[in-house]
Design a protein around this nucleic acid. Structure first.
Lengths: 222, 222
DNA sequence: CCAGAGCTATTTGTATACATTATCCCCTCC
DNA sequence: GGAGGGGATAATGTATACAAATAGCTCTGG
């Protein structure tokens, strides 16, 4: 992980997720190479990976740009994610272990801590949320399913608007996690699948609400 | 598409699909570079792409090998494919056009021609089948869904055993396509989805049957 | 004032050399 | 004789130079 191409990958990825490289901006290999302190070779490598994650898109003439996700694109990604992550939940329920269940409960406890604070700790929420879903995916035990979902969970636009989620949305997400835990504890795959489907779709609606809000704010700021 | 890295990609991909590079074989950049008549740079590029398609896997120490799909891996890929392609069928039904419907019917006619011959034309069957599913995916209209399914349809093991499919399996596949066409003609997404799910799963069973057979044949040949 | 050709600057593609890292084999030492 | 270390070998990672292609601009001609 300490290879130059890995460092470049992480660096560029974080520039995109943070918005330092805005959606639609052209990405130029040499500029990034200088910024990361490496040559173009590892940067090219990193860009190919980001491309396969759909964080970067290339025109037919080989120019690269930061992916510009329309609202429809985000909706599509959430819908596909709800389908695949529901399948992951179904499989995970069938193979759930006590150890994994503990890790899932811990992750949701971290989420509880984060959202109980006077000012919700969005970073803590996102981290706990990531762990929660990661453990489920791990228990589901399909490298392929994990690889498919990988390209769906990294949504720069969504990450940046997480700070505008309503308190209600955060609490609802936490309690839906509790329901999922109950389904896992009973090893009830059908139940887990159905909860996960609506959980992800509701997360999309939380995003859409927050997005409408930030969209207005952005317009007001222009 | 005439760039060296594209040619290398196609060349290596076809070596893997044809079995010239057998499953589990180590992939060495320089050897492939020489074979393709290019330098290592475009070969590296091609390998990264093949890697993201899971046709090539890398160890934790950066060595590359041709992916070795266990029967479980293949089953997993088919199951995920059935889920995603069912979703594609559902969406396609909602947005089906007469033009696309014609192309789909033509593709299935090509399949009919191929399997009616005294000796079934497996190449023609595969080509028609590819076109059939490609048009559906196109009508579904999600770049993202297309990208997810892309990594699931290229299964070297499956392609090579297609020649051992039973005549019954080929005919059943053709008539399931007819049913799908009927669902599309009625714009009935739910129906299309349900047929597509079982269509793909049955295709898996055809593979599993043929695979068991070829497995025995391979053993006998060793 | 617009369309288009051609030039220039920018950006990406490819080859090659070198650095780094892993693997394997042999050799020593216990 | 077996385990561990060290060096040779082979493979990948990185940097750099140069080639090819693209985009954008200017300048001309109508």
């Amino acid at each position: 992980m300490s290879r130059a191409s890995d460092r470049a990958f992480e660096a560029i990825r974080s520039m995109i997720l943070s918005g330092e490289l805005p959606a639609g901006a052209q990405v130029v290999e040499e500029a990034l190479a200088e910024k990361c302190g490496v040559s173009r070779t590892p940067v090219r490598d990193a860009l190919r990976r980001l491309e396969s994650d759909l964080l970067v898109v290339r025109t037919d003439t080989q120019r690269s740009f930061v992916a510009d996700w329309s609202l429809d694109d985000v909706a599509d990604a959430f819908e596909l994610r709800s389908i695949l992550e529901a399948e992951a939940a179904r499989r995970a329920a069938d193979q759930m272990t006590e150890g994994a269940l503990t890790r899932i409960r811990d992750a949701n406890r971290q989420i509880a801590d984060a959202i109980m604070k006077p000012v919700p700790d969005v970073g803590g929420f996102l981290e706990g949320n990531r762990e929660f879903h990661a453990v489920i995916l791990e228990v589901a035990g399909s490298r392929r399913l994990a690889s498919l979902l990988g390209t769906l969970i990294e949504q720069p636009v969504v990450w940046r608007t997480a700070h505008h989620y309503s308190r209600e949305a955060l609490h609802r997400s936490h309690s839906e996690h509790d329901e999922l835990i109950a389904a896992f504890a009973r090893r009830d795959g059908g139940w887990a699948k159905s909860i996960m489907t609506s959980h992800i779709l509701r997360a999309y609606h939380a995003y859409a609400d927050a997005h409408g809000l930030t969209g207005e704010l952005q317009q007001a700021a222009e």
